[in-house]
Design a protein around this nucleic acid. Structure first.
Length: 344
DNA sequence: AAAGCGGGGTT
DNA sequence: AACCCAGCTTT
């Protein structure tokens, strides 16, 4: 039995019951695919349910303010996905009458939609034979065919895209694409694939040559950057201060307390005399105390060493919001964790 | 071609 | 601690 038929037969038996598999509405497929980029199904699922409940159509999403969309997205990470999602919803609603483009080529032009997502929507919603190549597909194909070309370099991207394009079931591309991804997620998993009970184990080159653990090959990079964030938590009657992150950096457009970023740890005296602190508090009298210990918030590529300094200014300060309203703002998980523990 | 972008789970 | 996840955009 050939590779593709084995995969789709396996899928019909073992596929998970997931809400986006009950529809071919391109809006719903698009929503699910954006959320699942670099994100596990179990983590994305509750967000999919929240979004489809809050925004049943692309017009509902387009009509929402960005802060509201980011708030619903809070905790899912890679927030540019939410900003691009919102941008594209407005484009589709206002310029395309709410109708998504129906081909891979046209979908690829939309913000936030790359090769993978355009292929996924084109195949699932419009039955176009565009092959998806995600992390699962790289793993399944590199193992079964014994290909050691690095998957995260340009040669590998091209090679596996073409290979997947040759294998795809042109009669039912939607099922084939979802099948090979599901197979990679459940059967041909990264660390402990179930080779002993795999329907493809007779033809798998990696299994034959005992190279399952060495494939796929990835060029690894990224050393971790350490950053030191000192947050100023203003306490003035029922008010505190929040600021939106505007610059090109992590957490763009999310909110946080006024921030002093330094090259390392700072003590109370460093904070008191810092330019940003003086700018916020002015020359009025104040009380200042550190809350808790330094927290190390780990991102994929950065470790944020965060300390929180509670400030009781004598005079009113600018940029205040009610403490009771802090929970309404989209904030990084680091800030949400602090707010939950501190309780104003 | 390489860097930058979250958060959580697994080993 | 390292790796991975239904990747995309910018440099």
């Amino acid at each position: 039995m050939n590779f593709s038929k084995t995969i789709t037969d396996w899928y019909r038996t073992y596929k998970r019951d997931l809400p986006w598999r009950k529809t071919t509405d391109p809006y719903c497929i698009w929503l699910s695919e954006i959320m699942l980029q670099q994100t596990r199904v179990e983590q994305g699922l509750p967000y999919y349910l929240k979004f489809t409940a809050a925004y049943p159509t692309v017009f509902d999403l387009a009509a929402a303010p960005e802060d509201e969309v980011l708030k619903l997205w809070q905790g899912l990470g890679y927030y540019s996905r939410a900003r691009n999602l919102h941008h594209t919803a407005r484009y589709v609603a206002e310029e395309l009458g709410g109708r998504f483009p129906s081909s891979y080529k046209e979908l690829l032009k939309l913000k936030g939609i790359g090769d993978y997502t355009a292929s996924a929507i084109a195949s699932i919603s419009f039955n176009e034979a565009a092959a998806v190549v995600d992390g699962n597909v790289y793993r399944v194909l590199s193992r079964y065919f014994g290909v050691a070309i690095p998957v995260n370099a340009s040669e590998g991207v091209k090679y596996f895209k073409e290979l997947a394009g040759e294998l795809i079931d042109r009669q039912d591309p939607a099922t084939f694409n979802q099948a090979i991804m599901e197979f990679g997620a459940i059967q041909c998993s990264p660390r402990a694939p179930k080779c002993h009970e795999c329907p493809l184990n007779d033809g798998c080159v990696a299994l034959r040559d005992d190279k399952v653990q060495q494939l796929p090959v990835k060029i690894r990079k990224n050393s971790i950057r350490h950053r030191y964030f000192h947050y100023l938590v203003i306490e003035h009657d029922e008010y505190t201060v929040l600021q939106q992150r505007k610059h090109k950096d992590i957490w763009q457009h999310l909110y946080e307390f006024p921030l002093i970023e330094a090259d390392g740890p700072l003590d109370k005296s460093d904070i008191e005399h810092h330019k940003e602190f003086r700018k916020l508090v002015g020359d009025s009298p104040f009380r200042l105390e550190q809350y808790g210990e330094t927290v190390i918030h780990k991102l994929s590529h950065q470790h944020i060493h965060a300390s929180f300094w509670v400030v009781y200014p004598g005079d009113p300060v600018n940029g205040t919001v009610r403490k009771s309203e802090v929970g309404a703002y989209p904030v990084p998980v680091l800030i949400a964790n602090f707010v939950r523990e501190y309780e104003f």
